[in-house]
Amino acid sequence: MEIELRINGSAQKLDVAPQVSLLDALREYLGLTGTKKGCDQGACGACTVLADGRRINACLALAVQYQGREITTIEGVDHPLQEAFVRADGFQCGYCTPGQICSAIGMLAEHKEGAPSAATEHLADTGGELDETEIRERMSGNLCRCGAYNGIVSAIKEVAK
């Protein structure tokens, strides 16, 4: 079916079957391969993109459902986190990296809005500090098999300051 997606600020028309995920639409129909497929089951976070600024797993999103939403992929990201990741060596192979960065952008926004995490000691507290424990818990939806977790946390901490 004909659908229209708004991706990185521009409207894209494409013809996809309803079962095509947002992830496959990006990678296979629009050539936006920066968003990665790691598990296709919502268990790794490599496919994380932003929908209206909120981080989601594109593998579990049907493309047709996301018409009218503003989708941001790594190709549309221009954020201090990117340079921070390079400096802190927050990756090795780079495969999970776009997902980590999109996730971190969404995470910083959530924290700014006062959203709690499972690591938040006092749930009623909306202005807690984004310390390492908070970052690790909030980023746990993004696996990194190279084990670059320390670098990722450093990069995020630097930008969150």
């Binding site: 050539g31 936006l32 790594i74 990201v77 990117q82 060596d89 780079g94 990296t97």
Partner: peptide
């Protein structure tokens, strides 16, 4: 020194094996 492919990796520019497209590609 920072890794040379860093910029490409944080912008989504690198292409991994599955991401090379050819005309008439099948899946």
């Amino acid at each position: 020194v920072d890794r040379r492919d860093g910029n490409a990796k944080v912008t989504g520019a690198v292409r991994f094996s599955a991401e090379h497209h050819y005309p008439n590609l099948t899946y």
